[in-house]
Design a protein around this nucleic acid. Structure first.
Lengths: 212, 212
DNA sequence: TGTGTTACCGACCGTTCGTTCAGTAGACCG
DNA sequence: CGGTCTACTGAACGAACGGTCGGTAACACA
């Protein structure tokens, strides 16, 4: 099993100007790499040794930046959830018809999903094995409820078809959204908006060709 | 962490009449329980100790039935993939208009997914860490290609809208199908057909209420 | 040159992992 | 009863795991 690949360049600091002290990774760059590797091998399937290799340091160096593997998971999941909930607080998600708010949240979710791909991917794979994971699942469940409520409202408004259970519909809907993490490749391929367009079109109008 | 739960009853043999020898688990009942536990905790997150507890035996007993953890994964993944490919060979999936064949495969996939829930769930979570997982991913990719081809044919027939990329559409479509494993509970809740109906309706006609 | 600050190494610890093996236990049949 | 079949136990193995610790390396600024 060749687990080797080029180590991350620590010089690519996320924010602004240099700090004092020896150059290298900081907590943020470690988190970014960790999330990526967690996705490639799964959280449980990733050893601290794997992370160290990807970072180009020894594993003991990781503990200089974070308290342990659990904190890396926790911070990654919080980051994803914070971004998703931020969408639900945007103006387009709080004012207007339910169906339009739903579309706004869908497009916003696609955006978050693409921008924070590794973190959201990790979130969608959580099984609830530990306390950290259980907490994340609980927050995610609250997000899902917001969506289900929007669909219910849309049905009441007469904008969303009433012949499917809103709970099932909202789950299928975001099953479609979330599935993007399974195949989206940031570098090559479609841009965020194109995917969102295709998604919204299929979700609302369906795959069948419109009658002429 | 309380990892304890009632052990599986070995007496509930899957097939037919009793065999000779001491009663207990056999290879199939071990596989069934293993797939369930792999889903609850993730494959990498499940230890042989966890499996043994769920089976109500010591972990060394497991090696009487299977060669190791890898074989359990391998057999589970093959079982899921065999069932999915079987759908694509059914008559409804090989004759008729592409859009109807697509619907047949979608409904069949939902059926397989519900009937073999633990195995399919496991398949959808595979990351490709080992050779066994890589092989399963390869087979799954072939299945996905079949779907994409059906969508492309449907577009050529004029039955499926041409304003979305067939590759993206087919991925979103089966993202929706596959998301069912995330929330479907076999005991309580909807039956297999109801879900398939809702799925097909949303996928082909969309969520928006039809104009009257 | 020296001081503060940040980043890292290498050896090591206790635990848990998947796996092995020699021996034992229970049901059926004669 | 003995023979045969299948299912299981308990102790142990080496490897890999997450994590700790004392010491060191490289920068900025003075």
């Amino acid at each position: 099993m060749a687990r080797t690949s080029a180590p991350e360049n620590p010089a690519a600091r996320s924010t602004g100007r240099r700090r004092s002290g020896r150059p290298g990774h900081d907590a943020d760059s470690v988190l970014r790499v960790a999330a990526r590797v967690f996705n490639e091998r799964g959280y449980d399937g990733t050893s601290m040794e794997d992370l160290a290799r990807a970072l180009g340091v020894t594993k003991s160096a990781i503990y200089h930046h974070v308290s342990g593997k659990t904190e890396l998971l926790s911070r990654s999941l919080d980051l994803a959830l914070d971004a998703l909930f931020a969408v639900t607080r945007e103006e387009g998600a709080t004012t207007g018809h339910a169906i339009d708010r739903l579309e706004h949240v869908m497009r916003g979710s696609v955006r978050v999903l693409v921008e924070e791909l590794p973190h959201v991917t990790l979130l969608l794979r959580v099984r609830g094995n530990t306390e950290v994971e259980k907490r994340a699942l609980e927050r995610r469940r609250r997000f899902d409820h917001l969506i289900a409520d929007l669909v219910r409202e849309g049905v009441v408004d007469g904008d969303i078809r009433s012949d499917v259970d809103p709970a099932v519909a909202s789950r299928l809907l975001f099953g479609m959204v979330n599935s993007i993490v399974e195949w989206y490749k940031p570098d090559r391929g479609l841009a965020c908006e194109e995917i969102a367009d295709a998604l919204v079109r299929i979700a609302f109008e369906g795959m069948r060709a419109p009658k002429e």
